[in-house]
Amino acid sequence: MENKIKIFLVDDQQIANFIMKKVISTLAIDCEVIAFDKPKEALSALSENKPHLIFLDLNMPLINGWQFLEYMQDDQETKVVILTSSIDPVDEKKSKEFPQVIHYETKPPSKEKIKAIISREIK
């Protein structure tokens, strides 16, 4: 259980979370995935669950991806991968301003890339 990697999916689109869950499940990596379609709930669950990795969408109502990153500034442990349908270079550039962000991925999620990202975090 110690080595089991804990992953949060934060995306207001349930279908997007559904796809990511399936992609991760096919990787044959032992991990625990928790999906949130309300960013606020994910923020509340952060301190209790202490996930290793968050796949974060940018374009969300009420709390968007940027605001989400602002709220979790104090959390130095959790790493964030932006997973967005935006291919705007301005967004990618902005994401580099946040130290937690280790990757910027555009949807649809590619199985190989997701595998590479998660595998790196296990080591």
Partner: peptide
């Protein structure tokens, strides 16, 4: 952006369909 969001879901669904 608005068009790409649902499109990326469609592509993702096709991707995982084989499982």
């Amino acid at each position: 952006h608005n068009a790409r969001e649902p499109l990326s879901r469609i592509l993702g669904l096709i991707e995982i369909a084989e499982f």
